[in-house]
Design a binder for these strands. Structure first.
Lengths: 215, 215
DNA sequence: GTCTATACTTGGATAGAC
DNA sequence: GTCTATCCAAGTATAGAC
């Protein structure tokens, strides 16, 4: 359809720069997952995608900008899943179930690996920490919305405000993923989700919210 | 410019090598805190400590071994504080209070910064993930002991075994420190600790343990 | 837009004098 | 054990042809 706006395409170029950009982003995600931040050099990324190393600087300016573009892409993809999973949850039990599903998907997709690498790399680059932090903020927002919807009207919300609980949930989630990523053992995390699934109905019974009351 | 210090020490002097080793470990911790993993090169570390870059390879073999030595050192130091703080806690409320104090100390001391950097770097080096994981295990162990002592005999322990709770606590703790480290904002974490301090007495009242009963 | 070639920098690691 | 000097590999980034 519409061409990339002001960017005219010379007759000789096939596919244009847009495809190349996307390929680089994909190759970056792939390389971060496989080789980690320290191994994700411009050369390594280009090799992964079968692309030319010098084009990174033409399209992105620097590899740090490429990293951020990669984080944007994988975050956007995951956020779709998050929203779909979380919006469907009507009770605390369903929400816990969604979280467990999201956790597994995050590990499979390697999104958390990309994020973990960049978190570790954050202090290496000036301003990177803030930029990563900004990309985590939507998670907290989403978590708060979901929590508010499910337990917001119960007395529990007064004791533990959704805002604070959301922060804790995101921190717990991030910590679990990182630890799982370190030792490669998913069983402890799975056990925790099973435990949460067991406790959720009890908590819902103790603090009935509007969704339970309304049927 | 030649630097002063241990230079004038006679050959074969006892303790000369040990002191240098310790200085390198200290300089590594310092550099990791200040410049991050990517910035902690052999040259940068040596510069921090006013030492000779080539000695790293004489004393440690490689800089990865130096990183692990640094992690060992800072972990050992922090574990002393952990044990002291946690062993003194007699109730859930005191335990939460200890955790908050430990959290602040971890941030101040920069231990968590070192750990975060190495976690991020883990996948860059083969086998590093496992070695870091091994150094986190004592935390989980300590947390489990403390939890068991404080709430082990209450009915809550049946619903949420100390073993699993300990894993969750460590993951939550790690996630909180990493997030705080990213955006530099401690207020959300502080709010969580305050909230926990508020809830702890309630939980203790709901599930009285042996220490409360014995009062 | 994409390529080849390369300038320039930094990093890990080693050799050999003292 | 510590130093100076250096090798070599890898990194980011740019120049210029097509």
């Amino acid at each position: 359809m519409a061409k990339p706006g002001t960017k005219g395409r010379p007759p000789g170029a096939k596919g244009g720069g847009r495809a190349t950009r996307a390929q680089f982003v994909e190759a970056t995600i792939e390389t971060l997952k496989r080789e980690g931040f320290a191994g994700a050099s411009a050369r390594a990324i280009a090799r992964t995608g079968g692309l030319n190393q010098s084009l990174i600087f033409y399209h992105f300016g620097s590899i740090n900008d490429l990293f951020l573009a990669a984080l944007d892409e994988t975050s956007a993809r995951r956020m779709e899943s998050y929203r779909a999973a979380v919006d469907g949850a009507r009770s605390l039990a369903e929400l816990v179930d969604s979280a467990a599903r999201i956790y597994r998907e995050d590990l499979e997709s390697g999104h958390i690996k990309v994020l973990a690498e960049l978190i570790g790399a954050a202090s290496a680059v000036a301003g990177m920490g803030r930029q990563i932090s900004e990309r985590i903020a939507p998670w907290t927002h989403l978590a708060r919305e979901a929590i508010q919807r499910v337990v917001g009207a119960s007395p529990a919300a007064a004791l533990l405000p959704p805002e604070e609980l959301a922060h804790a949930v995101v921190a717990l989630y991030l910590g679990m993923e990182l630890l799982t990523n370190l030792d490669g053992d998913r069983s402890t995390a799975e056990a925790l989700f099973n435990r949460a699934a067991l406790l959720a109905p009890m908590l819902s019974a103790l603090f009935p919210g509007p969704t339970q009351a309304g049927g």
